[in-house]
Nucleic acid binder design. Structure first.
Lengths: 196, 196
DNA sequence: GGCTATAAATAACG
DNA sequence: CGTTATTTATAGCC
């Protein structure tokens, strides 16, 4: 070889585990490592089926949190409140029952449990992915395409109901705001709601 | 030396992010990854000078925790200071960033964080409810009507994007199923998706 | 925000 | 619990 230009990148450099001085670096490092930490926590939840809650206060004292199945439920359990059955199993029928009230709490519950369900389906999707990969190694599937044949349809019904309710409330709220504030940006958002 | 025996070690193998079946493996993985998670958290504390609390319930429901400077102090701050801890959980910008990929993990993240966010808003809404009840005792508010004047619009954008993506995927999936199974019930659901 | 080279974490074994 | 081969996470940049 005749010549060699400089390395296109220095790659990762070793840094001492001590307070980062340069605030711009500190900012980006905080963001990246916080993401990494939450991802690790998520993987631990999935791999081992455990409950985790993480609370982080940023350099600017802004709180960030991660929780599975739920930040508060885990913290409550840890702090001694044995309200230990809000979690895991939640049928779409129950979800629909909750939806009928459409109050704040019910709606929040639906979303919490929906998230859990989506996660469970994702997990199953990955398992089926592995199986089909071993079998014929062809059909790529989306995580929620797999389990839909059994209970997925009920899940879809729940999602539909929840989304419909959300849209209704959002439109009402945005309409209220647009009357109060007369902001162009708001109006454009309001009209684009039709695309839902 | 001309001959070469088997590799002295297979080294690290890639494993799917799904519940580990073999309980002996699960146990060791839980220990290792919990240590790794706490170490990462410790590094983040030192590097960025931030406060972190982590609570983990083991597969045997035994609680483990990490905290800097202390678990309780961080949790107290998180649970007891609603003034600054409202939405900082997750900005709509971050949510939209996650959405752009629209892969399983990103979508799941969006829902996890959205749920956290909605919960924070619900909490704040209840507090404001208490205040206004003490003040004039009249205006009943929906949990997400309160904070909408500031950041709610961005939140709505996020919700819209998430729901749109969900709808697209759901329709695609239901369509696939209807072709495969030719089930009348499914078709009726498929058509009703237009109401979203 | 996306890359690339390198440091770290860790799955399978001993 | 220590080793080792790999997979992941990420520091420095554009």
């Amino acid at each position: 070889m005749v010549m060699m230009k400089k390395k296109p990148s220095q790659g990762r450099q070793k840094i001492p585990i001590a307070k980062i001085a340069k605030s711009s670096n500190l900012q980006v490092t905080f963001c990246k490592r916080r993401s990494g930490l939450f991802k690790k926590a998520s993987e631990l939840c999935t791999l081992c089926g455990v409950e985790i809650a993480i609370v982080v206060f940023s350099p600017a004292n802004k709180p960030f949190s991660f929780g599975h199945p739920h930040v508060e439920s885990v913290l409550d359990r840890f702090l001694g409140t044995p309200k230990s059955s809000i979690d895991s199993d939640f049928t779409s029928q129950q979800a629909q029952d909750y939806m009928s009230g459409s109050s704040a709490h019910e709606l929040n519950m639906v979303f919490t449990q929906t998230q859990n369900h989506l996660e469970a389906e994702k997990k199953r999707g990955q398992e089926l992915d592995e199986m089909s990969k071993a079998g014929q190694g062809s059909s790529r599937r989306c995580w929620w395409e797999n389990p839909i044949d059994e209970m997925g349809l009920h899940e879809l019904e729940m999602m539909k109901a929840a989304m419909k309710e959300l849209k209704k409330n959002v439109i009402k709220q945005v309409n209220k705001i647009s009357m109060i504030q007369s902001c162009a940006a708001i109006n454009s958002q309001y009209h684009s709601l039709d695309e839902w």
